[in-house]
């Protein structure tokens, strides 16, 4: 599974600075591998809205359930198509 570069840059912009060089793969766990906690998840949501030009306000429950990059990728695909 190939990750959309816009998704990668959105995730990178939200990752805490000490994790900045961590490689991102589809299997990466957002919290445990990439350090995206509830605060940086807000950052990620803003980045996704900006980069994909969508509103995610009505998808927060689904977004909160995404634990991996793969799950997030699927959600964004669903929202944008």
């Amino acid at each position: 599974m190939k990750i959309n570069p816009l998704l990668v840059s959105s995730i990178q912009s939200a990752m805490p600075k000490p994790m900045a060089d961590t490689p991102i793969s589809v299997e990466s766990h957002l919290l445990h591998d990439l350090g995206i906690d509830s605060l940086s998840m807000m950052n990620l949501t803003l980045a996704l809205e900006t980069n994909f030009g969508v509103s995610l306000t009505t998808h927060i429950e689904a977004l909160a359930k995404c634990q991996t990059v793969a799950a997030l990728s699927t959600l964004i695909d669903n929202v944008t198509t």
């Binding site: 807000m42 949501t45 995610l56 306000t57 977004l63 909160a64």
Partner: peptide, 17 residues
């Protein structure tokens, strides 16, 4: 706690930001 995480996210997008 799980509900708080979701509600916080939602409140941030709708109000806090």
């Amino acid at each position: 706690a799980k509900d708080h995480k979701v509600q916080t996210q939602k409140a941030f997008l709708e109000v806090g930001r």
